[in-house]
Design a protein around this nucleic acid. Structure first.
Lengths: 211, 211
DNA sequence: AAATTCAGCGTACACGTGTTAGCCTAAATT
DNA sequence: AATTTAGGCTAACACGTGTACGCTGAATTT
């Protein structure tokens, strides 16, 4: 038995989350969003907000969690697409750019609060990015036979480049995003190439040393 | 003749700039800073603020310009250090990390407003980063004999990685920044290595095609 | 010496903010 | 059927905000 009361509560909680999401725009930061604005958009009295969240920060963290979840689901989708053949790098970037286009408010929120005032926000977002990164490092290690430390560093560099490019993509008209995506793909290949070169150099060193 | 009046005006203008800079902290964004707070810190009446800046945005842009200038001056310093020998990458990263430690408020401002609400801010900061990038691309082209397009892409990737690492450095205790710096150095070398590999691959392709 | 300029000030206004206290009413529990 | 629970409401508060207006007095120009 869910309870008609609990159902209603969940519904207006959802309304609050959506209200916040809807108000976010290139002109509106989450941190510039007021409790009253959100409540108004959700169609409830300002004071009722407290029945659902202790304060705006708690709402914001919920948004971050939801955004991170969406991103991770897309990553899984990415691996499925990969099974059908194609370049990992290209597919991942395309998926990522799609995410940015379809969830620009959430992605903007992640970027903004990543360097925002609240340590809790920053940590939550760092955690999301860490997921992204470690899954990539795992892939590089198991599928590409890179030693773990090199895989870690490569994954870190790649994630940095991708997120940075994603940030720039937000300010680009959709027509020009393609170009940025292509450049990013090339950069990731550059990094991948560099990593394997370094690995080979290291292993031949080891070989010649053991001879 | 400068005029005792003009001198005074410049002085309180400076006071406003410094007041803003002083109020910035991990807990205080520039955009969360109010005109009245700045005026109070500078020791003038709120309404007097308007004798110097049209609004807070204008003050903020001034801060961005000053910060960018500082960074570029450091770059020149970097080239001087280079003349005495040493790795470009290592020296550049060390200088950059120093900048972040000594000007953390300004760097934080750059990061935050890079994805902020004001398009003017975003453009101003993009311009500063562009400087950084094109000087690096120039260097890669002329000193390292890379073709311009490859130099551009490499420089872009490097700047993305460095700024991203810089952002993370802000949240690290100074003692742990060293480790991050070393990792970043390795990542830049990875990128450099990848770029030269790609260049060689391209030129041997061209050679074999012409045979 | 007289006239003008202008940085800085105090007052005042209208407005949006977060949050408290207390009431209402339908759902849930006893 | 009686009681308790809890989401939603209105009213009210104290406070900080940006900015318009008009004044003052010293520096500057005429």
């Amino acid at each position: 038995m869910v309870g008609i009361r609990a159902k209603q509560k969940e519904k207006t909680r959802r309304a609050l989350i959506d209200a916040a999401l809807n108000q976010l725009s290139p002109q509106t930061t989450f941190s510039s969003l007021s409790l009253r604005e959100v409540a108004r958009e959700a169609g409830i009295a300002p004071t009722s907000f407290y029945r659902h969240f202790q304060n705006m920060d708690e709402l914001g963290l919920t948004l971050v969690d939801e955004g991170g979840l969406t991103l991770r689901q897309l990553l899984r989708q990415s691996r499925q697409r990969l099974a059908k053949g194609g370049s990992v790098i290209r597919i991942s970037i395309e998926i990522f750019m799609d995410f940015i286009s379809n969830n620009s408010s959430v992605f903007r929120l992640l970027l903004q609060e990543r360097s925002g005032t609240s340590k809790e926000f920053r940590l939550a977002i760092a955690r999301e990015i860490e997921h992204f990164k470690s899954e990539l490092a795992d892939y590089l290690h198991t599928e590409r036979q890179l030693p773990t430390d090199l895989a870690e560093i490569q994954a870190d560099a790649m994630v940095r480049v991708v997120f940075s490019a994603g940030a720039d993509a937000l300010d680009l008209p959709p027509s020009e995003r393609h170009l940025l995506a292509e450049q990013t793909i090339q950069q990731l290949r550059m990094i991948a190439q560099g990593a394997t070169s370094m690995q080979q150099a290291a292993s031949t060193d080891a070989t010649s040393a053991s001879n």
